[in-house]
Design a protein around this nucleic acid. Structure first.
Lengths: 225, 225
DNA sequence: AGGGTTTGTGTCCCTGGTACGTCAAGGATA
DNA sequence: TATCCTTGACGTACCAGGGACACAAACCCT
């Protein structure tokens, strides 16, 4: 079965995956970065990622790199391939194409720790990241654009919150992703009329009027990405 | 510069591109296929595509394969990468990842002729293609979905028509891509209120009332994809 | 008790989309 | 030349969704 030969002009390239993983922190959209421990770009910040192993599917590689480099365990449904970067000179080591993935980290996934060949892993502001290695800024730009597109449809924002949450919190997630303010009343109207939320108990935020707690309605389990 | 070594576990894979190229014919959305001349899948139909050459950008490879296999010359602005297929066993020759591209053929590009290693090239119904080689049916499915998404925004449909055209013709393009009928009057309203069309002379279709001819308004050159 | 802070709510208007009936301009035919 | 057939052209009414907008309610703290 595997006995067929490849034509001679078939380029053999290094196959990599990169992951732009997002989470909410203090009302800000954060992206997960690692500090590279090896050349090239040693000590520079980069998106987690690395080479695909033989016999390994693309999404498996993405999950593995995320796990080994940042200790973040993720379900496949929170991962989506969104673009492949294959420019000839994007990597000084040779022709390396990277299949870039978008990851949405469910609320609670905050503990990160460097691993593998990295010097460390950290959450940084997605809209104001430090200087990134390779073409990772371009990758991040595209990831943000895709994330904003996805927001319109699904209940993607809910992934960033715990099981129960307040409407202002949910609005904060939207604002952090879209990077702009929204109108309170219109936001409520839209979300509630959509019927994907149900109420729970009460809650006090320590300051101001207590907010109503909501949770996602039953049967609203659309895949995150 | 190129002196850095790749880590040993870095998978070397074959890098390919495939192109789902669409055009209108007799009111139907057509996709461009080639009949394979070599193993595997010899004599089966497939999307045009092949291996990326060393030092060649992805989109260059896509354009080259299209040119050599089907004699279709295309501008880069009519090409868009939309997904990368990298399943481990998608190709019996080994690990081959294919970066799939969507192409919109401007009106007039009809003459196709087989070339390269193919037995021939042909236009077939995009919604009812024959059995395809490899995972090309999955690629086609995704290409159609993307095409339908794109339709909403841009003047993508105009790419399928000559410089001057009638509104019913334009509506036919929409219907062919969306694979469903549209309302005549609402379609006019939408398109004309958009202000991207201007009028020209008249024209008779041989049967029924002659239709007004339109052309795209000046300064409406948004990139096709 | 009062000030500060945050949540919660209703109205108007504009836009875009859909459903729908009717007239107009030709070609073909008798 | 009159009639019919075919297809293009046009306008109205209705509904849903989104954006702009101001004020009351609940809780904390001092």
């Amino acid at each position: 079965m595997n006995s067929l030969a490849l034509p001679p002009q078939a380029t053999q390239v290094g196959l990599a995956v990169d992951v732009a993983a997002f989470a909410m922190h203090a009302g800000e959209l954060m992206v997960l970065l690692v500090q590279r421990g090896e050349l090239p770009h040693a000590r520079d910040w980069a998106l987690p990622g690395g080479f695909v192993h033989p016999g390994e599917e693309l999404h498996e590689a993405a999950l593995r790199e995320l796990r080994t480099e940042t200790s973040v365990e993720l379900e496949p449904r929170h991962l989506e391939q969104f673009f492949t970067f294959g420019e000839v000179n994007r990597d000084p080591r040779g022709r390396i194409v990277s299949v870039a993935h978008l990851a949405v980290l469910p609320h609670g996934t905050v503990s990160v720790s460097g691993g593998g060949h990295t010097l460390g892993a950290e959450w940084v502001s997605a809209h104001r990241p430090p200087r990134l290695a390779f073409d990772h800024q371009a990758i991040l730009d595209r990831a943000l654009a895709r994330l904003q597109l996805r927001l319109e449809y699904a209940n993607l924002a809910l992934e960033f919150l715990p099981d129960t949450f307040t409407l202002p919190e949910l609005q904060g997630v939207f604002e952090a992703i879209l990077n702009r303010k929204l109108d309170k009343r219109n936001f409520r109207k839209r979300l509630l009329s959509q019927g994907t939320l149900t109420v729970s108990g009460e809650r006090r935020s320590g300051v101001g009027r207590p907010a109503q707690l909501y949770r996602r309605a039953k049967g609203t389990r659309t895949p995150a990405l």
